[in-house]
Write a protein that binds this DNA or RNA. Structure first.
Length: 476
DNA sequence: ATGTCC
């Protein structure tokens, strides 16, 4: 069967009509060039997702979509538990609650410039990065369970930040419904020394310049001004999330037949939301969300300490913290009827429009900050959630540039040392323990994030507010 | 993404 997306009335939306066992259509948000360049495996994977039990409305792909484990990365799918809807480990991904937070520094480029190198060097020392990196914090069993229940709120109680940070964190920094008992001892053991660490791959801590504001009013509400410095942290739940993903994918694949679920692809392993296994995954996955929130909160604390050393008196305040690998229970209208759905976003950012009750004062009027992380050496974007994306993709937007080339291909094409040198001539300081990692993350291995963001804007998924240019990048 | 296969 050929799963070919066809043009719709919108130049930024493409549709695969239901065929075979698909229960709903698949919709891909892209322009002509992005859809032409998109890996055909995305269309197949999205069509597979569209055939899962209880799926609502359509399976969606964001403009940065690329092939992933089971679900495409950049995929959004919502399921109704009352219609046999499922929850899928592959629909969340291995890096549970990977996300980005952006912090204001209140500094201008002129204030930063004389201290830039020192800041890069000290951040590289203070922020543990790389595969298997560990920090100075070692949690006891009791602390681990408290962290898995409390998330960033737990981290703040431990002295890593303030209540103000929690107001600007999705779910107020604490995901309800987490159950540490659903997380294996092995997953907890892996995480014991990994709190406050960045990890590897596309994770980073970046010092950025607000290079351009597109929407002055919203930028003012977000406290973003051209010429000012911000810091963005992109990471997730480290070994714990990965272990949860690995274990539950195995359980879900084994149990699928007992649950009467036909799997178009073994990687799409899932369980009914109402089943024991489904509930157990949700308890563990929500604990994973809290782990990621706590991790980014601790990294924020470490960053504050460094900034205060290099530029005494600097105050880092949080613009927003939002995840892009989750499954969340949300209220949505389907055919005019309000329903409680379980929305999977894998490599797709939550993007709540103006007026949404989950947004805090000061943001509710303008919409949620949607943080789109670029790849190393490229620009990032701050967007704002819009109301119409509720109908278009359950209030979701793209999450980054999206890979255009495999890691293996990238290492054959670039050398880490040359990539660092090249970026340095453009004034971008890279600090990484892994030259191979740097080669894998070479800017050329990714799609053009500006095009992806323009399409997200044009398609009505979110609207552009500001562009950020990198100055310092601490990589895993 | 990931102690890149306990």
């Amino acid at each position: 069967m050929e799963f070919r997306p066809l043009a719709t009335e919108s130049p930024y939306a493409w549709r695969i009509a239901p065929q075979g066992r698909m229960r709903v259509p698949a919709i891909i948000y892209a322009d002509h060039m992005l859809i032409e360049a998109m890996d055909h495996k995305v269309f197949k994977q999205l069509s597979n997702v569209a055939s899962l039990p209880g799926i609502q409305q359509a399976a969606y792909a964001m403009p940065d979509a690329h092939w992933g484990y089971g679900f495409p990365i950049g995929g959004v799918a919502a399921f109704d538990p009352d219609e046999g809807g499922v929850v899928s480990g592959g629909g969340v991904g291995f890096d549970i609650s990977c996300g980005v937070r952006t912090l204001h520094t209140g500094l201008t480029l002129d204030q930063l410039r004389p201290h830039k190198k020192a800041l890069a060097d000290l951040l590289a020392v203070a922020i543990p990065a790389g595969l298997g990196s560990t920090g100075t914090i070692k949690l006891t069993h009791r602390e681990m369970d408290q962290m898995l229940i409390g998330g960033a709120a737990w981290a703040v109680q431990q002295g890593y930040g303030s209540e103000a940070d929690l107001l600007r964190t999705e779910e107020h920094g604490c995901m309800a419904g987490a159950n540490p008992a659903d997380v294996s001892e092995k997953a907890k053991e892996r995480q014991r020394r990994e709190m406050g660490t960045l990890g590897s791959g596309n994770h980073y801590l970046e010092v950025q310049l607000v290079a351009q504001v597109y929407d002055a009013e919203t930028a003012a509400a977000f406290d973003l001004r051209e010429g000012e410095i911000v810091i963005s942290i992109h990471c997730g739940s480290r070994g714990l999330g990965h272990q949860i993903g690995t274990e539950f994918l195995k359980f879900m694949a084994t149990k699928a037949k007992d649950h009467g679920i036909w799997l178009p692809d073994r990687e799409l392993a899932c369980a009914p939301i109402e089943s024991k296994l489904g509930q157990s995954y949700l308890g563990a996955m929500r604990a994973g969300i809290n782990c990621a929130l706590a991790n980014r909160q601790i990294l924020t604390h470490l960053t504050r300490e460094v900034c205060d050393d290099v530029l005494p008196g600097t105050q880092l305040t949080l613009l927003y913290d939002v995840s892009h690998n989750t499954c969340k229970r949300e209220t949505h209208r389907i055919d005019g009827k309000e329903k409680q759905l379980f929305v999977h976003r894998k490599g797709a950012t939550l993007a709540l429009g103006p007026g949404h009750p989950d947004l805090p004062d000061g943001l509710r009027e303008v919409g949620q900050p949607v943080i789109i992380g670029g790849s190393m050496g490229t620009e990032s974007y701050i967007l704002a959630g819009v109301k119409e994306s509720e109908k278009l993709a359950f209030s979701s937007a793209c999450h980054g540039a999206g890979r255009a080339m495999s890691r293996h291909q990238a290492t054959k094409r670039w050398h880490g040392r040359n990539v660092i040198k090249e970026l340095e001539t453009r004034g971008i300081l890279i600090r990484s323990p892994s030259l191979r990692g740097v080669a894998e993350e070479a800017p050329g291995a990714y799609k053009d994030v500006s095009r992806v963001v323009d399409v997200a804007h044009q398609a009505g998924l979110s609207r552009k507010v500001a562009r950020l240019e990198p100055l310092i990048c601490v990589k895993g």
